Simulated assay, not measured.
Amino acid sequence: MVGKPLHTVDVRIATRAWRGKEAVDVRPLRATAEYPFLEVAQPLPDLCAAHGRRAVERRGTWIRFLRTGRGSEQATSGSLARSFSGEMWRALRTLTATPKVEISAVVYGEWPVCGDCVRRAKRLRWLGHTLAAIGPAALVGSVVAFLLTGPGQVPILLVLAAFPGGFPLGVILAIFAYGDARALIHCRPIADETSVIIRAHPEFADAAQGVAGSAG
């Protein structure tokens, strides 16, 4: 029986230039320079990369990479927070324009996922929905309380739930939750346009080598 891995291994997945005909939408991140659109160029096994279990579906996912101090790093809640905080500090220190988070590359793949990954993504999306709703709900509650009780009688906790609890904190945490819900694959910093190295279950690694070998 395949269980949760005690460790993960590096798996090199071949990539090539994106051949799709549809326009690619990578919002909400905005690019300030040209960057490559890539896609997985080799067959993938029907095993979840994260857990090594039999995949229940394949999800088409764009993996975004950001220009950071560590190179071209996968966009996750952690890397986004580091990148944005660094850019914000640089903007405040130098009094320059609004800080930008730059995309360095985007990789598309039909990634196999197991039931645990599907349920985790669903939980994170619901968490994002809840966090995003806190601010508006608390704001409406504050207005209603003000109208019913008058100035100075609105509960302070309700006010704090609206600001800064709902905005900006709730919105920021919701964005992170949505981002982590899409993070089905975890990658090393990307070095070139011919491959991407992912962190995967050893059984996925073995199966990926077998599938790639048979395809070649």
Score class of each variant (00 low, 15 high):
Ala208Val: 14
Leu160His: 02
Glu193Tyr: 06
Ser195Gly: 09
Pro189Val: 12
Ile172Trp: 01
Gly165Ser: 03
Ala181Gln: 10
Gly179Cys: 04
Ile175Phe: 14
Val211Trp: 12
Leu158Asp: 00
Ser195Pro: 06
Gly179Gln: 07
Ile172Glu: 03
Ile185Lys: 03
Arg188Tyr: 12
Ser195Ala: 15
Ala162Gln: 04
Gly179Thr: 05
Ala208Gly: 09
Leu160Gly: 07
Gly166His: 03
Arg182Asp: 10
Phe167Gly: 06
Gly165Glu: 02
Val171Trp: 05
Ala191Ser: 11
Leu160Thr: 03
Asp192Tyr: 05
Asp206Leu: 13
Thr194Lys: 09
Asp192Ala: 13
Gly179Glu: 02
Arg188Ser: 14
Ala161Val: 04
Gly166Ser: 05
Asp192His: 13
Ala207Pro: 10
Leu173Glu: 06
Ala177Gln: 00
Ala174Phe: 02
Leu173Gly: 05
Val196Tyr: 04
Phe204Ala: 09
Gly170Trp: 03
Leu158Gln: 04
Asp180Ile: 05
Ile197Glu: 08
Arg182Val: 07
Ala191Tyr: 03
Leu160Glu: 04
Pro168Val: 07
Val196Pro: 01
Leu184Gly: 07
Ala177Leu: 04
Phe176Asn: 03
Phe167Arg: 00
Arg199Cys: 11
Ala177Lys: 03
Cys187Gly: 11
Pro168Thr: 07
Asp180Glu: 15
Gly210Asn: 10
Pro164Cys: 13
Gly210Ser: 13
Ala177Asn: 02
